[in-house]
């Protein structure tokens, strides 16, 4: 039988399918349940220094091919998140703490607290497309990205992953600026909008949001391919993965591990076990023994 185990930085994963940040990862009990139902790791909701309520509703638009969301970085603030991590860690698989900030000092402070809570790695949200002063506004400045990661790598002992935005002109310069990260996570949602034509207004209270799901898969695959080819960095592929075929596409483009989120809306959390089973079947059929054997095969 093939092995679907994989590794990202120094972290071993039972399978390539982690829970992506922003979906079902605010309450510790939910993260624990998702780990118990087949996810190889969970990435928490992005946590900042201060408590934020986020945007008022509507925060989500359902589309036939994905979702547009503008939650607005709602989070309890780092000092109120320790208990949720503690509960999630009872799932006995890696918990990755996602953080957002606007300066290197803020990122360091957040990462140190996350490390102290016991997370296995940090994921930097350099890419939220809909909150001023954070996310992609930070992540589109290569010098700032480089400085944040340099500071973090000198001050914390756990791996650092950088989640990049597709909403930039030159992703390669950002990927290169983030090269000291243990892995790059690509892609975050694509900036988007939906207008209700009978109400004659944008649906989201924030007007703009981030598109996820099926609609963005091929954008994600292209970014992973391009960045892997140019940088050789370890990559976690994310964006629109719904089936093992989608997963294999990302892996062949260069991803060593994957994250899924929006598909849970369609298939529920049973999707983690389903993806693992289907991936194993594919590898068996195609004669692959390991995930690393498949990683980047489309690049050559």
């Amino acid at each position: 039988m093939p092995s679907i185990r994989t590794k990202i930085g120094p972290i071993s994963l039972e399978n390539p399918f982690m829970l992506a940040s922003g979906i079902l990862d605010e309450n510790g009990y939910t993260m624990k349940r998702i780990l118990e139902n087949g996810a190889s790791a969970v990435v928490t909701k992005s946590i900042g220094t201060d408590e934020r309520t986020g945007y008022s509703t509507p925060v989500i638009v359902e589309l036939p091919y994905g979702l547009i969301n503008a939650i607005g970085l709602a989070n309890p603030g780092i000092d109120n998140f320790g208990e949720e991590i503690k509960i999630a860690l009872k799932g006995n698989r890696p918990v990755i703490g996602s953080i957002f900030g606007s300066t290197p000092e803020e990122f360091v402070n957040l990462a140190l607290k996350m490390e102290n809570y016991g997370v296995n790695a940090i994921e930097l949200n350099l890419s939220c497309p809909h909150v001023k002063g954070f996310g992609s506004e930070v992540g589109s400045d290569p010098d700032l990205v480089e400085e944040i990661i340099k500071e973090l790598k000198s001050k914390i002992n756990i791996p650092v992953f950088s989640k990049l935005s597709p909403n930039v002109t030159d992703i390669l310069s950002i990927a290169k600026a983030a090269e000291r990260s243990d892995a790059l996570v690509m892609i975050n949602t694509v900036r988007a909008m939906s207008i209700d034509i009978y109400a004659r207004k944008p649906v989201l209270s924030n007007k703009y949001g981030g598109l996820s799901g099926q609609a963005i898969k091929n954008i994600g695959v292209r970014y992973v391919y391009e960045v892997k080819k140019e940088t050789g960095q370890q990559i976690v592929g994310v964006g629109g993965i719904e089936t093992a075929e989608d997963a294999v596409e990302y892996i062949m483009a260069g991803a060593s591990a994957l994250q899924v989120g929006t598909v849970i809306h369609k298939k529920g959390i049973g999707v983690f076990k389903e993806l693992s089973r289907e991936l194993e079947e594919f590898m068996n059929h195609e004669g692959y023994e390991t995930v690393s054997e498949m990683t980047g095969v489309a690049l050559s």
Binding site: L24, I60, G261, I264, H265
Partner: peptide, 17 residues
Amino acid sequence: MKCAIGICDSCSVNGIQ
């Protein structure tokens, strides 16, 4: 409740939406 479609985690109780 925010999303009402089982993904935002606002309304969860012991992992159930």
